[in-house]
Nucleic acid binder design. Structure first.
Lengths: 236, 236
DNA sequence: TTTTCATTCAATAGTTTTATTGAATGAAGA
DNA sequence: TCTTCATTCAATAAAACTATTGAATGAAAA
């Protein structure tokens, strides 16, 4: 039947996309690329994959039109193909938390172990920024900060927080944010801040969610440049 | 590293869901279940799968918490686990059409072959219903109509349209709708209507989209009942 | 030109997914 | 009780996916 063939082709083509999403590493890669363009080695470092393996996963995502690549100098930068990719990932993330008890448990158990850290919503942060009652701190690696960050946020990469913490004011609330709800960098930062007499809290979601909500951001002009050997892997 | 383990578990758990979505038959099943609860045999008939195979795919979806099942009499009815499942499927569908040229091509080629059929948006239909200038016709199988349909729509299953067409008024515009944008039943209906001197057009999306948009629907009171041997497979 | 090196390619073995088949289950009806 | 039959289960072979390894590519730098 003609219509059967059509439907078979259509759903098959659709599943090309969903198949590409059906792998834990590729989901993690998408979550990372939501921060901005990244080279293969950076992706590999931050996802605990070998370079060859990361490259292959990136190619799978590329063939499914979920990411695009662009050569800059000797690096090949991959990024999400468009906003809808991030929105779809958000829908999946939300679905996971609603439907899968195990995901909730994993998440809550992990966060509880690290004390009860204060969390604030995007709306609350917007209000607090208006009254100038908070300092917003971006704890992601500097590269990601440069690719785009919440307006007026300060870059305090988690790795450098120990050395730089004294630059922060003790009398203001410090709101830390990171890659997103599945990222624990902001939690680590808040715990460390609280231990040192600061009043810290974490933004519930991360930079990509903020940006997707059309809230004010800033971007480094010359984010093309990349110093030799400067690539800093995450500690995880 | 502790955080690495956590992330690995989290993304792995998430991929349980996306893996279940990574198969063309299961996408088609989800699209079908968006119409309402359906028994295994009905799913099998409408997706061109063997009963055993359909059952297995349904179980995969169930283990991923995407669908739920409920025994009624001797039938096992499966349905989408919640609204977010449909919303996620919509996000994926949208992504497919935005990103995948091949999907667009498939779709447009197929529709062009069947003449240029007039399509109207949900908003337009809402307006036209207010001015009472249209007759809305549900061309899905009767079972699906009974599970829920657009308010005041008439049930004209595609299979019975030929016999029942004379019951429709020639002076009003007839708007046909079906399962959704990937379903071609409404197209078939409109083509047949136009060939017979009616002024037909198809609603762009389908019943589940209408319902998800909180637009007015009706539901049969006694949709539990199912007459023996009444199960009508689609013609595809 | 030669060297360097980020990335990709190609081959492979191990694992997972898939469709098919026929049998088993078990609830409803006779 | 026995029969019916919608669904699930179990086994299997074919296909697809995955991580690993080491080599190949090819553009930038020396």
């Amino acid at each position: 039947m003609d219509i059967r063939k059509f439907k078979t082709s259509l759903y098959k083509e659709m599943s090309g996309m969903t198949k590409a999403l059906g792998n834990p590493h590729r989901l993690e890669i998408l979550d990372l690329l939501a921060q901005g363009p990244a080279a293969v080695e950076y992706v590999a470092l931050n996802t605990n994959l070998s370079v060859a393996n990361a490259s292959q996963h990136l190619q799978v995502l590329k063939n499914a039109f979920l990411v695009e690549s662009e050569k800059r100098g000797k690096y090949n930068y991959y990024k999400l193909a468009n906003k809808q990719v991030f929105e779809t990932w958000c829908a999946l993330r939300r679905l996971g938390f609603i439907q899968n008890e195990e995901i909730n448990k994993l998440f809550n158990d992990f966060r509880k172990k690290r004390k009860h850290l204060k969390t604030i919503s995007t709306d609350d942060l917007v209000k607090k920024i208006k009254t100038d009652s908070v300092v917003v701190v971006d704890v992601r690696p500097e590269e990601e900060f440069k690719n785009g960050h919440i307006e007026n946020a300060l870059s305090f990469p988690l790795m450098e927080l120990r050395e730089k913490i004294s630059e922060l004011p003790k009398e203001k609330e410090i709101v830390a944010y990171c890659r997103g709800p599945l990222c624990m960098m902001a939690d680590d930062a808040v715990e460390f801040l609280n231990q040192n007499g600061y009043s810290g809290s974490r933004l519930e979601k991360g930079y990509p969610d903020w940006s997707a909500g059309s809230l004010p951001i800033e971007r480094d002009e010359c984010n093309q440049r990349k110093e030799k050997g400067k690539t800093q892997g995450s500690i995880y």
